[in-house]
């Protein structure tokens, strides 16, 4: 079937065609570069920004904020998740609040975080952590509760202690869920860092976007966006890598279920 052969070369060719169309439109179509910059100018901005070290310098800041937030989110999310899943009365008391908090846009906490921690790097880290916290928490709880009773029965038949059941069965069983949460958290922490920078910062890719925006340099903005994408991707890929290593026994993709 020539369809499958087409499938291999069509994506890159398709994108090439799209990019060329974009380029011609931008140059010839009379659209201001403010609205739709040509891919060439985006690439140019990207290259310049990388070469003079500006991108890397600011990316470093955003990366530190994201990574720190990620680590915090994982630690807090797993710990609290374990507590809620294991301590029955905690779960019953907090359940409605968790459901409500899931629906609340956590970015709204940004001004609050600034009140608490000012405009320094701390507030960005905290905001990133807050955004990453919820997916990890929810998934940890779901994972710990998903343990099928059969395996728990095996442990109970051996008169295992509650801690033994948690450590040897419930926790490993929850790991695929925890990683799913970590994958989501990886993108959310970048979002948190950038939003925090939007509200006020001296360094970071978000700050850079605001600067470029002031100069109406849309090409620059797109270039920075790509930089941000790379950052998020690196974080995501690292989590995936750890997942592949630690969860060799579980399928990598869980089938999506409504």
């Amino acid at each position: 079937m020539n369809l499958s052969r087409a499938e291999t070369w069509l994506p890159p060719v398709g994108v090439l065609v799209l990019v060329l169309l974009w380029e011609t439109l931008a140059r010839v179509g009379g659209i201001s570069p403010f609205v739709l910059p040509a891919p060439s100018s985006v690439a140019h901005s990207f290259w310049v920004g990388l070469r003079n070290g500006v991108y890397l310098q600011h990316a470093m800041w955003t990366a530190i904020e994201s990574l720190s937030g990620f680590v915090l989110a994982m630690v807090a999310g797993i710990t609290l998740g374990a507590l809620v899943a294991e301590v029955r009365f905690l779960e019953r008391a907090l359940y409605p609040f968790l459901v409500a908090l899931q629906a609340m846009p956590k970015v709204a906490l940004a001004p609050l975080v600034i009140i608490w921690l000012g405009y320094g790097i701390g507030s960005k880290i905290l905001l990133a952590a807050l955004l990453g916290f919820f997916p990890v928490l929810i998934n940890t709880i779901a994972g710990l509760k998903s343990c099928d009773s059969g395996k728990v029965d095996v442990m109970r038949a051996l008169a295992a202690s509650r801690w033994q059941v948690f450590r040897m069965v419930k926790l490993p069983n929850a790991m695929p869920f925890v990683f799913a949460g970590a994958n989501v958290a990886a993108s959310f922490v970048v979002l948190g860092a950038v939003t925090g920078e939007f509200l006020g910062a001296k360094q970071g890719l978000g700050t850079l976007i605001l600067l470029a925006n002031n100069e109406l340099d849309t090409a620059q903005i797109f270039a920075i966006l790509i930089m941000l994408g790379l950052l998020g991707f690196v974080l995501f890929a690292s989590v995936r890598f750890a997942q592949r290593r630690l969860l060799s026994w579980a399928p990598l993709e869980a089938s999506p279920q409504p």
């Binding site: 395996k151 029965d153 008169a159 040897m168």
Partner: peptide
């Protein structure tokens, strides 16, 4: 004095076979 085999084998998927068999040794 009792060992139980359930309807479902209930093996821990993240452990090798020998480690699954050794589970009671760890617990006890």
């Amino acid at each position: 004095s009792v060992g139980v085999a359930f309807q479902d084998a209930n093996l821990l998927p993240w452990r090798s076979i020998i480690d699954n068999v050794l589970l009671p040794a760890q617990v006890l």
